[in-house]
Computed example of a mutant assay.
Amino acid sequence: MSIRRLLLSWLLCLSSYCLYAQAFTLEGQVRNARTDQPIPFATLGIVGRNIGTVADEQGRYILRFPAAPTDSLVITSVGFFRAAVSPQALLNGQREFTLVPLEQALPDVVVQRRRVKAGQIGRTQPTGEVLWTAGSSGKETVDDEWGWELGTVLTPKRPAYLDALHVYLSTNTYEHLRFRLNLYTLENGRPGRALLAQDIQLTTTNKQRGWVQLDVSSYDIRLEAQPVVATIQWLQSEKTDPWDKYFSIPVRRDKKQVMVERENSQAVWTIQAMQPSLYFTVLEEVDKR
């Protein structure tokens, strides 16, 4: 082989390597390991990095890496054990993932509530100093943005049952938006263990703005009189026109670091001295006297 041919081959290999190193795309489906049925809105992400996405209603996903993966991909969904897939398996072509359902034995318990009164926890003002915006522009899909999560630390003064979630949207250009409600313990000032066993979702239609409400009273969610983190996670969005796709939530500066945010289900949490327009109406327990 001539020197020129060797050089050309080397340059082609180098070019292929550069292209490979620049982008790596996964496209496949997440399914139930027992029923083989799709798992809607499962989350996929790399721990500690801003690489992740959310599957659609049929469990199908598209996940783009800036380079070949070097860390395990974590797949999660409410009601399932989490799964981790090695980077080598991804490089070898694995694109279909399965999750095993959690076994949740529910004991026969008669719940007796104490006397309660209506209350609120969170920020009820519809305006703020900043509009916290999420979205994209000029792309046919927004799969790279799905999975973004925003929330706040809440501290009930007394034990309370959640009645309804309220989130204020200052702007919304989407025909359809879907969010998941998440609750976490507060550990070392950051979200810790997930508290919800149910997949509770909030949806909007027709570019809905203002206060968006989700009734959660039927889930019988009880909070203790201690800090908890409540977030909404962006699961899905649709818009006919692919341009100017975004929504925003008012945020007010706060003396304490109570607002939490992360890019996807496995990214590192950031904590801000701010508070979003997000609150719950609750039924607070009162002492019998």
Rank of each mutant, 00 (worst) to 15 (best):
240 T>F: 13
284 E>N: 04
263 E>A: 12
106 L>S: 12
153 V>M: 09
153 V>C: 02
147 G>P: 11
83 A>L: 11
208 Q>V: 05
143 D>Q: 13
121 I>V: 15
243 W>L: 06
220 D>T: 07
275 Q>L: 09
242 P>T: 07
146 W>Q: 06
177 L>K: 09
78 V>E: 13
224 E>A: 03
129 E>F: 11
26 L>Y: 06
8 L>W: 07
12 L>M: 14
259 M>H: 07
225 A>E: 01
70 T>F: 03
272 Q>N: 15
161 Y>T: 02
48 G>W: 00
124 T>H: 00
277 S>Y: 02
143 D>P: 01
174 Y>Q: 09
185 T>R: 14
158 R>N: 02
223 L>N: 02
114 R>F: 04
192 G>E: 12
23 A>M: 14
66 P>C: 02
268 V>Y: 05
50 N>Y: 01
91 L>W: 06
179 F>I: 05
26 L>A: 02
161 Y>E: 09
192 G>F: 14
71 D>I: 00
30 V>E: 10
49 R>C: 11
52 G>W: 12
93 G>W: 04
117 K>W: 03
139 K>T: 15
81 F>Q: 10
114 R>N: 08
56 D>P: 04
248 S>G: 14
74 V>Q: 09
135 G>A: 12
202 L>Q: 09
126 P>M: 14
27 E>N: 05
196 L>A: 06
240 T>Q: 13
178 R>Y: 06
193 R>A: 10
3 I>D: 12
269 W>R: 06
133 T>R: 15
257 Q>N: 06
182 N>R: 15
104 Q>H: 07
208 Q>E: 14
262 R>D: 09
178 R>F: 04
107 P>S: 06
257 Q>R: 13
97 F>Q: 00
182 N>Q: 14
97 F>W: 04
82 R>M: 14
48 G>A: 03
107 P>K: 08
154 L>D: 04
79 G>P: 06
286 V>W: 00
135 G>S: 11
137 S>E: 08
134 A>D: 12
271 I>V: 15
40 P>C: 07
227 P>W: 04
138 G>D: 01
288 K>L: 08
35 T>F: 01
49 R>D: 15
153 V>S: 05
54 V>R: 11
101 P>L: 11
142 V>E: 15
12 L>H: 09
62 I>F: 07
144 D>E: 14
166 H>K: 11
32 N>Q: 09
208 Q>C: 05
99 L>E: 05
189 G>T: 13
125 Q>G: 07
22 Q>W: 11
